[in-house]
Structures are given as structure tokens and as C-alpha cells.
Amino acid sequence: MSKLPTPTAFKGRGALSNPEGRFESTQAVAEDDGWYREEAAERPGTEVREEIARSVISRNDSPDVGFSQAINPYRGCEHGCVYCYARPSHAYLNLSPGLDFETKLSVKTNLVEVLRKELAKPGYTCSPINIGSNTDVYQPIEKSWRLTRAALELLGECNHPCTIVTKNALIERDLDLLVSMAQRRLVHVFISINSLDNRLASKLEPRASAPHRRLQTVRTLHDAGVPVGVLVAPIIPALNERDLEEIIERAATNGAHSVGYTCIRLPHELKQLFREWLDQHYPDRASHIMSLIQQMNGGKDYDSHFATRMHGQGVFADIIHKRVLVAARKAGLDKAWTETLDTSKFNPCRAPSPQGELF
């Protein structure tokens, strides 16, 4: 008897399948009719489409998120991190949170023009903007599209503060802008490092920079005078949490000013995608890992409660929290980072008007 197709792991891709998003009215279900013959699946390539954005600043009031507004130059992310909490957002585009998320990308080509207009609005209140809250702004397509650099140029021109989170060494390309902004207290950078195992990282986050390369980036930013912290995110129990202490130690050695962490979150379609990935790459401990994740989420795959969703709950979550505290204290990173970003010099960079400005 023939068998149904099994999810395929593609080199350089994180997800194994392309399930329909939760808003689709129909779903395809494989059925064995006796005629199926398994053949090698074609490796999916990256497709990029241009998008004309009507607005680019998104705002949130979530109590567990450290910023109130953000910009995201790209939809989808070529890094392909299988654990990415942003994958379900692709369902809003009628695309799959699976392979579509890392292969069918959108670029907001008018990002800078719209951002300039939004910053120039008379009622705009300056507060730090996070660049890339949903997807990584230094993913590979940034090399050619350069939207992140263009946004930094505008923010620097306006003396507008920002924060950046990335796991790609491409950020070093923009050192000239970052150093200038750092001298005016306009930027904080955070590098995400969740493992020191290159083999694991190549499966978890296949197109992100290797862990050792990210540590080099921490050192490069620090030496250039750019404030840089490290985020151990996400921590996945029984998979990458063994590296927790060493990541924090090496972060401090390379000049990080602070360290933070989150635990894995599996909202919506991400539950299925992560289970597929575990069954493919770590079948011997897949059930154990999911059991620990459920223990950290009140018995469920995911608990969206603001008070616990970032760090989990229960005994295992408490152990991870204490390990982070102890490691940070040993590394000298237990003191709160007190340097604040400067919003006082913000200049909206409005175009000159023959009527002048009343306010």
C-alpha cells in the first residue's frame, strides 16, 4: 500500500509544510487513493513582492512589551526560524504561516516617505520606535532593498530614538549611522542568541547568522560605542536551554550591557509547525519537549496571558528564571541598564511651508 506524503525538510528552510492559515474557508487534506508515489519535493525559492503601505507605524499597549510603537519594513522573514511567533501574521495576507512565511515576502517600498509624513504630523508624540518587532529587519533581502538603512537615515535626521532587535550580522553594515545615533543617545541594539550549537541553529533558524558570528557582532557594536544587549530568545526546554549560562557569560565578555530572555511561544498555526519540526529533527525527545512546554503554559501548548506568555509559569519556568538571574549576576549583567534614549531633541523634519508653523 502506498503511503501519504510526509513533511519534507528543505536545506535553508525552517518549516516543513505549508498549512492553510486560520482564516481560510477551505483546507486541503491529503488522502491516500492508492496512486500516490513519493517523489523529491522541489526546494522552494524566495519570492518578493512590492507593497505600497498606507501607514508604517504600528502601536501597542501590551504591558509585557517594552515599546509602544514600531515599524516593520518587511512582511515574512527569510531567516526561517521555525519557532517565530510572527509566523501566524502571514495568515492575514491569505498566505501560509509555514513555508510561505519564509519564501513569500513583502517589502514596503514607500516606507521612508510614509514614515516621514507620520513623524511630521502635528499631533505626533515622540517615543522610541522599535525597528522590526514582527520580522527581522536585517534578514537577507535587506542587503538589496536597504529599507532598514533608509529608515535609520531618516530617524537620525529627525533625532528620533529607536531600538533594534536582530539575529543577523548585516547590522554591522550600518555602523556609520548607528555610531552617530549612539553619540546622541538615539539607539539601543539587541542581538538575539538562543544557542551556541551551530548544528542546532542551522535547523532552528536556518538563514540567520551563526551564533559565533552574532557574538562577534556584539563585540563590534560595543567597540564602536553602540549600546548593545543580548536576548536569549526563545529558550526551548530540553533543546537549547543547556547553553543559557554560557550565552550570558560570553555576551558579557563581548561587551553586552544587559541580558534578557523569553521562552518559546506557540500561538495559532505555530503549534502544528513546531510539532512537525520536532518530529522530523528530534523524534527521540519531541514528546518530552512538548510536555515541558505545556507545563510552562498551564497544561496547554500556549497561554496568551500577558503576565506569563513571555517567561512561562510553573516549576520549570521558575528554574529557568533563577538560572538567568544567577548567570547574569556572575557575568556582571544583573544591574539594570539605566541609560535612557533621548526624546528631547526630536525634530519632525517637516518640509518648509510658506505659511510657517503655528505650533
Rank of each mutant, 00 (worst) to 15 (best):
residue 2 S to K: 03
residue 10 F to M: 01
residue 15 A to R: 13
residue 16 L to I: 02
residue 20 E to V: 00
residue 20 E to T: 00
residue 24 E to M: 07
residue 24 E to P: 03
residue 25 S to L: 06
residue 26 T to E: 03
residue 30 A to I: 00
residue 30 A to K: 04
residue 30 A to T: 01
residue 30 A to Q: 03
residue 32 D to C: 03
residue 34 G to H: 06
residue 37 R to V: 01
residue 40 A to N: 01
residue 47 E to K: 14
residue 48 V to C: 12
residue 52 I to L: 12
residue 54 R to F: 05
residue 58 S to T: 09
residue 60 N to L: 14
residue 63 P to T: 02
residue 64 D to M: 03
residue 68 S to Y: 02
residue 71 I to K: 11
residue 74 Y to H: 10
residue 75 R to G: 09
residue 75 R to P: 12
residue 81 C to F: 15
residue 83 Y to E: 10
residue 83 Y to Q: 09
residue 84 C to K: 15
residue 84 C to G: 11
residue 88 P to F: 10
residue 91 A to V: 04
residue 92 Y to Q: 14
residue 93 L to H: 14
residue 94 N to E: 09
residue 96 S to M: 13
residue 101 F to N: 12
residue 103 T to H: 08
residue 105 L to F: 11
residue 105 L to S: 08
residue 107 V to M: 13
residue 107 V to S: 13
residue 107 V to K: 13
residue 108 K to F: 13
residue 109 T to S: 12
residue 112 V to E: 15
residue 113 E to V: 06
residue 114 V to E: 14
residue 121 K to S: 00
residue 122 P to Q: 04
residue 130 N to V: 10
residue 133 S to A: 15
residue 135 T to S: 08
residue 140 P to L: 15
residue 142 E to T: 06
residue 144 S to E: 15
residue 149 R to A: 05
residue 150 A to E: 15
residue 151 A to Q: 15
residue 153 E to G: 09
residue 156 G to D: 11
residue 163 T to S: 08
residue 165 V to K: 09
residue 165 V to N: 12
residue 169 A to V: 04
residue 171 I to E: 08
residue 173 R to T: 12
residue 176 D to W: 13
residue 176 D to M: 09
residue 177 L to A: 03
residue 178 L to D: 05
residue 182 A to K: 10
residue 182 A to M: 05
residue 188 H to E: 11
residue 191 I to H: 06
residue 193 I to S: 02
residue 195 S to P: 11
residue 197 D to A: 03
residue 198 N to W: 02
residue 198 N to R: 05
residue 198 N to T: 06
residue 199 R to Q: 11
residue 203 K to V: 11
residue 211 P to H: 01
residue 213 R to A: 05
residue 214 R to T: 02
residue 216 Q to A: 00
residue 216 Q to D: 02
residue 218 V to A: 01
residue 219 R to Y: 00
residue 224 A to H: 05
residue 224 A to D: 03
residue 224 A to C: 02
residue 227 P to R: 06
residue 229 G to D: 10
residue 232 V to N: 14
residue 232 V to L: 12
residue 234 P to A: 05
residue 235 I to Q: 13
residue 235 I to M: 12
residue 241 E to G: 07
residue 241 E to K: 03
residue 242 R to G: 11
residue 243 D to L: 03
residue 244 L to E: 10
residue 247 I to T: 02
residue 250 R to F: 02
residue 251 A to W: 07
residue 253 T to P: 00
residue 255 G to W: 06
residue 256 A to I: 00
residue 259 V to C: 01
residue 260 G to F: 13
residue 263 C to E: 12
residue 266 L to G: 02
residue 271 K to V: 08
residue 271 K to G: 09
residue 273 L to M: 05
residue 273 L to S: 01
residue 274 F to S: 13
residue 274 F to D: 11
residue 275 R to C: 09
residue 288 H to F: 14
residue 290 M to F: 01
residue 294 Q to S: 11
residue 295 Q to W: 10
residue 298 G to N: 14
residue 298 G to M: 11
residue 299 G to T: 04
residue 305 H to K: 11
residue 315 V to M: 04
residue 317 A to Q: 06
residue 325 L to S: 10
residue 326 V to M: 08
residue 327 A to Q: 10
residue 330 K to Y: 04
residue 336 A to P: 00
residue 337 W to F: 13
residue 340 T to W: 01
residue 343 T to E: 12
residue 347 N to C: 06
residue 348 P to E: 04
residue 352 P to Y: 03
residue 353 S to N: 12
